[in-house]
Structures are given as C-alpha cells and as structure tokens.
Computed example of a mutant assay.
Amino acid sequence: MPKSKFLAAALAATAFMGVSAPASATDNWIDELRVGVYDHASDAFGSSHETNNPDINAEALFASPDWLSWAGAPRPMIGANLNTGGGTSIAYAGLAWDYYFTDAIFVEGTFGGAIHNGETSGNNGPDRDRMNYGCRAMFHESASLGYNFDGHSSLMLTIDHMSNASLCDENPGLTDIGVRYGFKF
C-alpha cells in the first residue's frame, strides 16, 4: 500500500471516529485521547532500522462495553504510529488493560492487530533502508508505565511492538519507545 493511501486511510478513520463521537463528554463513548512521540525502531532493542526520524503516536480509547467484563473490562482502542521520515508507519486496533497501583501510578498492557506500509518482500527495498516485515497484517502490543496527575491528564512511558509472530518468512518486528500524554474525559 503506498504511503499516501495508508496515511489517507488513517486520517479517514480518525475523521470518522471524530464525527461519530457523542457531542458531550458525559456520554463517555470516547474514554481517552492520547498523543506522543516515539523513537522509531529504538536502539534500546538492537540496531535501529530505516530512519532516525521519530514516530508520532495518536490513539483513542473507548469505554469498555459490558460484554467485555468477563475479560477484566479492557478498553477497545485504535491508533497509529506515523513515521516523520519515510520509515514504516502503522495503524492498529485492539484492547487495553489498566492496573492502578495507587490513585496516580498505573501500568497498561495492550494486545491487538496492526497493518503497516513497510516492505513485505525482497531485500529491504531498493535502497536497503526499509525493513522487510514479511506480511502486511501483524500483531501489535504495548506496555506503559504512567502517572495520572488529576484524573484527566496522564503521562506515560511506553514500549510499542509490532511483529508477525513468525507466521511469515521474515519477522524482524518493529519496537518503538516513547512518551505519551493522555486526556481522559
């Protein structure tokens, strides 16, 4: 999928979510919005690939529906990591589980699926700067350590990972590390 089509699809999904959201925050359809910046393919987990340009993260979390109470009431979420330098960008959806140690300190884990605009075959693209991820559909998971300032605003240190769990021939994975700000309605 060309980068422009990928970005257009991500923007269309974001616009759809914004238009279909309730008019007031008291409806609690969208539970939280987040933005952040990630170190793309962070050196903390091996050699950095593709680009040194950061990823911009945007994410929307929704109120947990009653039918997910059996699974610990995770919040459904959608998001995207958009690389600012021509590297691989991803769009993802899944579920997020939060655990609060205190009123302020929490951890969060997520699990779901992702699609990306990176290479899926060949030797890392014509310039050999792009990773070959083997297939388009991937698993996506993340973990965050956060601090909630006032019940609405939080700051999180996040590790974000995408891979195909060796279901395709190539599986280098993509791991980002960064910080995010969240606003809970």
Rank of each mutant, 00 (worst) to 15 (best):
A93F: 09
Y133V: 03
G146L: 10
S153W: 14
R130E: 08
S142M: 11
K3D: 13
M138S: 14
D176P: 01
A25T: 14
G182I: 12
G112A: 11
S69E: 12
E119P: 06
V19E: 09
R128C: 05
H152K: 08
S166I: 01
S144L: 00
R136F: 00
T110P: 05
S154L: 13
F111L: 15
I159R: 11
A8S: 12
G182N: 12
F16R: 05
G173A: 11
M156T: 05
Y99E: 08
D150M: 08
E50W: 08
E108H: 02
A9I: 09
Y38C: 03
A137F: 00
G46F: 08
F183K: 12
A71V: 09
M1N: 09
I177N: 07
N53F: 07
A60T: 03
P74G: 11
L11I: 01
I78F: 14
G182E: 09
P22A: 15
P54G: 10
H161I: 04
S89I: 09
G85F: 10
P65A: 02
K3M: 02
A104C: 07
V107D: 02
N81S: 12
C135Y: 02
L95H: 03
E32A: 06
S20T: 15
L11G: 14
K3H: 14
W29Q: 11
T84G: 10
G36E: 04
V179Q: 05
I159M: 14
K5W: 10
P22C: 14
N132F: 01
L33M: 06
P65G: 11
H140F: 12
N81I: 00
G46M: 10
A80Y: 05
W29P: 00
Y133T: 01
G18D: 08
G79V: 04
S144M: 12
H140Y: 14
R128G: 04
